[in-house]
Design a protein around this nucleic acid. Structure first.
Lengths: 341, 341
DNA sequence: GCGCTATCTGAAAGCGCTTTCCTGCGGTAC
DNA sequence: GTACCGCAGGAAAGCGCTTTCAGATAGCGC
């Protein structure tokens, strides 16, 4: 916004023949103002299409009506489900959301926190798991610490090793374990895993939970393929598994999005799901029930998680203790998993 | 952000033993500053974890580094595809994106424009078709006009009857017509349409284009069902059609998302796609190629559209003429459409 | 060595707003 | 009629920054 002149409070006050103090009082309803003056001010404001400069307000009030949200990729259904909840809750509270997409670049993530800090965002929400990486943790801490000290609020979805902030914590470990047990109960004993990038806490938890539950039943997994957290990652991972000779009756993908890619790869290679191999994912993003076969998965209430994380961040008071809200996952057995051939 | 005190430029200047003018010059690289002073300032800034108050900067510079994006629903893949492009382009330009979800509430849409105006957003992007509704158009005009006059930039995706601003225009009419012709070529003569809410220009264009192309071949459509632009809308619409006795060999849904719902409904009623009835959508959102059968659709380069709309809005100069960038849709025939039974 | 110019630094103004603080008014009590 | 109180409205300060503007210092030619 550059070249033209804006309508300011002064203009409104001038037009109404009052001081800007009075105009401000009228427009904010801060104090009692004589009826005729109030009317003149309101008329002038609407006549001039006045909109207060939010920056000036933020400056003098030292607070503003925006929250920042940082995610990896807006177009990932996992995230956009959560984002939907955040947006809804923000709308209810008349808050504006500044959304940043890191495209899984940790440097950019830190940079965004800095920008959001500069914007004096009322709260910053980190959606998506943290990087389990010392340098990232440290850089993040450098940005977040002063923000918190200045009264900023931070809340996250997923486990962050180093961030001691309010957290909405999907029970990835437990969910994956429950899924493993359900799959065992179907009769499977040979599993392969499509893992996301190691170093993401979500991956660690899901894969760990899955393996531990299997181990408890005396089953181990040696076929494990790692790839990025997207459809291509799932596709490539499944293809690699197939190339090396898939020795499993059931395939577990760390996310539904990866499972979708895996399904495509399996199908291309002529394997039928679930007749030849069962397939399960995690998250329960909306599309998976429309796949053929519908995907077995661990369901997470994404939209609700979004609402809860912003509520957590906004809640005043309770400055004391850090709160962790656990969100259980529900195993949903659909047609993509049956007993082993 | 409320209670604690922030590190200000003054603090940095004090710590470095210089005036705040000098500190500002160092931090912005605005002017040459003696080497030792510059070092002291930089050291102090990083020591104190200083972040400039973006509001103060915005206030004095009368411009800022944010753009506003208004969409209907972040979790709709059509929108999130576009948003991805916007986010990527914004990141390249070091811009922060304020994202607002209207949940298809036109009142809220206008309110958001007002908020974005207050934030002095550098540009406002309206994603998703306008409402063809006089009152909305007028309210929108009241907000947008002063914004534009003050040098704000506005760009939209989709046709807006009343908004004479830079536009990325998917060729809905032509795309739908091309699809209709392709379907005719397959041999279909009896069609049903799943339409979105009338009063959305996108719906008008797509349905209109489809019908006109059929009409040109002497084919008319009387089975047309209207519903909201989401999976449920498609599901309900298809169900209603089925209840009334579907008299068509091919079903066209105005969006892929609706087609997904329709597919579920058809399947539930025991109709096979494409053997019993062909199904086509519009948009080519990522999931449709993973459906069984993969969906015939008109492909739109969503991410690219996002990049183009922000580029349009940001482009300085060329203040003169309004620009309209047409984006052709490509008919993609997949397995969901074959010749009539 | 003196005066002039070229640089760099600091003081101060001002962006648009909110919020004391203070003045002036009318009303009440004596 | 005078003294006092309460209240509404205006003047002005100040939020944190950038940017003139002017002052100080150094460098140069003569």
């Amino acid at each position: 916004m550059a070249d033209r002149v804006h309508v300011t409070l002064r203009d409104v006050a001038l037009a109404a023949g009052v001081s800007s103090a009075t105009a401000s009082r009228v427009l904010n309803g801060t104090a009692k103002v004589r009826e005729d003056l109030r009317e003149r001010v309101e008329a002038a404001a609407s006549e001039l299409a006045y909109t207060p400069n939010a920056h000036a307000q933020a400056l003098v009030r030292a607070s503003n009506e925006t929250v920042g949200v940082i995610c990896h990729d807006v177009s990932d259904p996992y995230f956009s489900g959560i984002a939907r909840g955040v947006m809804r809750a923000a709308a209810q509270r008349d808050l504006l959301v500044m959304l940043a997409s890191t495209f899984r670049d940790s440097t950019r993530e830190v940079a965004y926190v800095s920008m959001l800090r500069a914007q004096r965002a009322r709260a910053i929400l980190l959606i998506g798991s943290g990087f389990e990486d010392r340098r990232w943790e440290q850089a993040m801490d450098v940005e977040l610490r002063p923000y918190l000290n200045a009264g900023g609020r931070v809340a996250v979805v997923s486990r962050h090793r180093s961030l001691r902030v309010d957290t909405v914590l999907p029970e990835n470990r437990e969910g994956a374990a429950a899924l493993a047990r359900a799959l065992l109960a179907l009769g499977h004993r040979r599993f392969a895993i499509l893992s996301g990038p190691v170093g993401l806490s979500t991956v660690v938890d899901r894969v760990g939970g899955f393996r531990d539950a299997l181990a408890a039943a005396g089953v181990s997994v040696d076929q494990i393929e790692e790839g990025p957290f997207n459809r291509e990652g799932g596709y490539a991972g499944a293809s690699a598994l197939l190339d090396r000779g898939l020795d499993a009756t059931c395939l577990f993908a760390a996310t539904d999005v990866m499972a979708v890619g895996a399904l495509a790869a399996l199908r291309e290679r002529g394997l039928r799901v679930p007749e030849d191999v069962s397939l399960a994912g995690f998250d329960d993003i909306p599309v998976v029930r429309d796949l053929t076969p519908p995907l077995t998965t661990v369901s997470l209430p994404l939209e609700e998680m979004g609402e809860r994380v912003i509520a957590l961040a906004l809640r005043e008071g309770s400055r004391g203790r850090r709160r962790i809200e656990r969100v259980p996952g529900t195993v949903i057995l659909r047609a993509s998993t049956i007993g082993p051939p």
